[in-house]
Design a protein around this nucleic acid. Sequence first.
DNA 1: TTTTTATTGGTAATTATTTAACAAACTGAT
DNA 2: ATCAGTTTGTTAAATAATTACCAATAAAAA
Lengths: 217, 217
Amino acid sequence: MERMRSSISMAVIRRLPKYYRYLNELVEKGVTRISSMEFGRILGFTASQIRQDLNCFGGFGQQGYGYNVKELRDEIANILGLNKTNNAIIVGAGNLGQAIANYSGFRGSGFILKGMFDINPRLVGISIRDIKIMDIDEMSEFIKKADINVGIICTPKEGAQEVADRLTGERIKAIWNFAPTDLDVPEDVIVENVHLSESLMVLAYLMNQRENAEDNK
Amino acid sequence: MERMRSSISMAVIRRLPKYYRYLNELVEKGVTRISSMEFGRILGFTASQIRQDLNCFGGFGQQGYGYNVKELRDEIANILGLNKTNNAIIVGAGNLGQAIANYSGFRGSGFILKGMFDINPRLVGISIRDIKIMDIDEMSEFIKKADINVGIICTPKEGAQEVADRLTGERIKAIWNFAPTDLDVPEDVIVENVHLSESLMVLAYLMNQRENAEDNK
DNA sequence: TTTTTATTGGTAATTATTTAACAAACTGAT
DNA sequence: ATCAGTTTGTTAAATAATTACCAATAAAAA
């Protein structure tokens, strides 16, 4: 355990999953080795950036050879912590919550969905993929009992902060937040936001801009 | 029409929706003016950054006064192109597609959902919020007829590129992509990705890191 | 074995982004 | 009207991120 320099920029970290995804595809295709140049061509990055990024975590390549695809894939899985399991619950079992419950990507990243909660009595009792929707009042007890450390917030923005407070009150470690608001949490709690409305507005901006550029031609 | 300098960085653009969101909240609270310093305190940005960002688009403030909240909100809405309407279709009407169809955020950003498509015959014919799910073979005709310029891809990764090809073949302008893959499109087509798996892996990384840091204490 | 070729890891240069600083200019009080 | 207090827009400085470069070294060829 030597390399624990916590000062790796988010820019680098957000590229890791993409590396991982493409490395998996290469493994599937049976590619055993790859140079940073070729890998960069595939990803649309410079070779330099790839080498720089990977070197934040260790020297995984070899001169004159490149990188061993399978080995690098496993290294990155390890860096991302995909081999560790984290138990999660979804709070807010409406359309989005149910869609997330059906999301097949949990497998691949070590998260296990253990429960779902909602305030709406009509939803309580329904099961989604063998996960029963429970009343939100049972949440605290469940978190303790089932060793939950991740909360996925799929409520409307109005309820989100209160849910976050309850989750952090139970010493949850991280929140995956789909509610269109910024959460106020203790500094040792990790929040990863998925703000669909912001993504959509960026799309609107780019379309609008493109259109203006056309007009000015 | 003077200010059309297209060289505004994505870093700035991705902050605009957040400005817009908080300005809306301030309007609702009845706040009429705000200084960059106070606004920065609320958003967690520096006052400098806010002034710098806004000045990419124009001088909306006034010395000794600050910014008029409502006015600035409307300016940003205009910059983001939220007043223009864009007709959209969803391709892939599974859980995620249906959840997106129910998504209420379209309103606020000028997008109008006009149709949904799927290859699964069991889904074709069903309606979600008055939007009928159609067979994907009807898509091309529908795009022309209903003046669609945005495609929302909610298929598994396997079908995504083919859907993208069909969409761009019909001269669609932009794609909101939820499939866990990178799409290859003509350069004049805008793609905005929502890669949930990548977001989740970043969360995994941050949790893993935090844990390692704890251990080293 | 020797030579040529490929390719890394690391350092330096460049470019981009963020933050600081401050003159100019407005507000609001006296 | 004048003046003190604010706060902007803008330029300069600092910091961060990306790209270019190259010596070192391994692989492959001769």
